[in-house]
């Protein structure tokens, strides 16, 4: 079954919300594993894994460094070097946070790596207010590879003008300036041309735009979407009510 972009967004977002609310390590691990499995089934496993590792590895390192070594509230000390104390409580806290964040990050990355961006843009544009958000999303995603190519052209042009990038800092700063300025100037200039084109093509004043690209949105998926979101809302509600005065944080 092909998922509508908003359905997969709702599922990924709800997974992130529910695991945050539940704050249970086993559930978080299960969600991460499921998301990873789904990404491998869709053939994007490697991409999702790489993206997750890039975000989660430094984050986990920081968490274990901060809480694993310095947790004044901890009482069960395993090891101690000068001011640094490794405590059970600190390690538990770090592990709990790391798994919770992982369980929010991985499903969302599975969504971004598997969704068809044009479909997402079409689905968002069809919903009124978000037309401009969809434009910004699509334009940003289109700009990233284009900027890469432009950056390469600019570097070649500057090298041909005598730019030599050496390892020391002043040379790097100078090289950065030589490349960043032409890049930003041309981007700003291009943007002002595009602004006029968008106005002329009626984007800015569009009242009720239609969509050329048709994205299938069958009824069962719409129901599923609402159910998933409702479920997430209920879990959040339960968690918040249990934590109100008298509850346990």
């Amino acid at each position: 079954m092909k998922l509508h972009p908003l359905t997969s967004l709702a599922i990924a977002g709800s997974a992130a919300v529910v695991t945050t609310a539940a704050a249970s390590v086993p559930l978080s691990l299960a969600v991460m594993a499921t998301a990873a499995a789904l990404s491998f089934m869709s053939g994007r496993g490697a991409q999702v894994l790489a993206a997750s590792a890039m975000i989660l590895v430094p984050l986990c390192l920081a968490l274990f460094m901060v809480h694993g070594l310095f947790f004044p509230e901890g009482t069960t000390v395993i090891a101690q070097w000068g001011p640094a104390r490794v405590t059970i409580e600190g390690l538990t806290f770090a592990a709990e946070r790391a798994s919770r964040i992982g369980a929010a990050v991985v499903p969302l990355l599975v969504f971004s790596c598997t969704v068809s961006v044009p479909d997402l843009v079409a689905a968002l544009s069809a919903r009124g207010v978000s037309g401009r958000v969809a434009f910004v999303l699509a334009a940003t995603l289109a700009l990233v590879p284009a900027i890469g190519q432009q950056q390469l052209r600019i570097r070649q042009a500057q090298e041909a003008r005598g730019l030599v990038i050496r390892r020391h800092l002043p040379s790097r700063i100078a090289a950065f300036r030589l490349q960043a300025l032409p890049l930003v100037l041309s981007l700003v200039e291009e943007a002002s041309g595009r602004a006029q084109a968008l106005e002329a093509r009626g984007f800015v004043s569009a009242a009720r735009p239609t969509s050329y690209r048709q994205v299938q949105d069958p009824l069962p998926q719409r129901i599923l979407r609402w159910l998933v979101l409702l479920c997430a809302a209920v879990v959040v509600g339960l968690r918040l009510s249990s934590s109100l005065p008298g509850g346990n944080w």
Partner: peptide, 10 residues
């Protein structure tokens, strides 16, 4: 306005 909107992606 459009001039600002197109600058946002940049």
């Amino acid at each position: 306005p459009a001039s600002t909107l197109v600058l946002i992606p940049v």
